[in-house]
Design a binder for these strands. Structure first.
Length: 269
DNA sequence: CTGGGGATGGGGCCC
DNA sequence: AGGGCCCCATCCCCA
């Protein structure tokens, strides 16, 4: 599974975009070209206005709102450590992807009783915590948090919808980043290919220049992309990262494991 | 068929 | 808030 958790993804659905359909917002980068890469211009986001998404949830207390731990990917074999990057944190349970939509029932009688009554001598105290979405007030933060978790927050959590597709995001920043995958504002001057981000264009330009700044410490190979060097390093490793659950055969790449599984190993068991 | 390289996409984190 | 970089994932192609 992809590491990304902010957006629902479907396997084999990530085909390359049709650039010809998406080029209406692209901006050709300046001719100073590949000495210092100019910043691409992001199209003015009329796409971000006119109610394309719901209001942001604002918490009325300072306590931490929703956090979402990363879901685990395909578990690597223990003992493997990359010489390239930071060590991934151990997998944790994914609470973010859980669907709370089943909890959208009307507010229960019990929760109604949690609301302060003005005749209550402690009413002033009880109004300390107010839900900014429905204006309900609670005497304790935990009461408010529970309310929001069960009702308001669960409904507004994924509130930033893309105009061009059905994807939804938990933050405006994530949505803006995603929209660039539609508008593709970074255009290669050499071949005209468009990319969503400057550094993607930068990597693409290396395919023209032949620059390979990532060298393998074990052999004399060099790569234009760090990820490709990382994949290459697996070929030097005795311990392959990805293991078939059925035959225990290990592979250097997840894609090879997938191929292996699809070729019928798992069917035989 | 398998393994590996090349190229690319995309969300997260940090500054 | 946005840019840069990180990492992971995937697809395509070739030996």
């Amino acid at each position: 599974m992809p590491r990304s958790f902010l957006v629902k993804k479907h396997f084999n659905a990530s085909k390359k975009p049709n650039y010809s359909e998406l080029d209406t917002h692209t901006v050709i980068i300046s001719p100073y070209l590949y000495e210092s890469y100019p910043m691409p211009v992001i199209p003015k986001p009329e796409i971000l206005t006119s109610g394309a998404y719901s209001p942001i949830t604002v918490w009325t207390s300072s306590a931490a709102p929703f956090h979402s731990p990363l879901p685990s990917g395909l578990s690597p074999l223990t003992g493997y450590s990359s010489s390239l990057g930071r060590v991934s944190p151990p997998p944790s349970s994914d609470t973010s992807s859980k669907d709370h939509s089943g909890s959208e029932s009307p507010i229960s009688d019990e929760e109604e009783r949690l609301q302060p009554k003005l005749s209550d001598p402690h009413a002033i105290e009880a109004e300390k915590f107010q839900c900014n979405l429905c204006n309900k007030t609670y005497s304790t933060f935990s009461g408010l948090a529970k309310h929001k978790q069960l009702h308001c927050d669960a409904q507004s959590r994924k509130s930033f919808s893309c105009k061009y597709c059905d994807k939804e995001y938990v933050s405006l920043g994530a949505l803006k980043m995603h929209i660039r995958t539609h508008t593709l504002p970074c255009v290669c001057k050499i071949c005209g290919k468009a990319f969503s981000r400057p550094w993607l264009l930068q990597g693409h330009i290396r395919t023209h220049t032949g620059e390979k700044p990532f060298s393998c410490p074990h052999c004399n190979r060099a790569f234009a992309d760090r990820s490709n060097l990382r994949a290459h390093l697996q070929t030097h490793s005795d311990v392959k990262k990805y293991q078939c659950k059925n035959c225990s055969k290990t592979f250097s790449r997840m894609s090879l494991l997938h191929k292996h599984e699809e070729s019928g190993c798992c069917v035989a068991h």
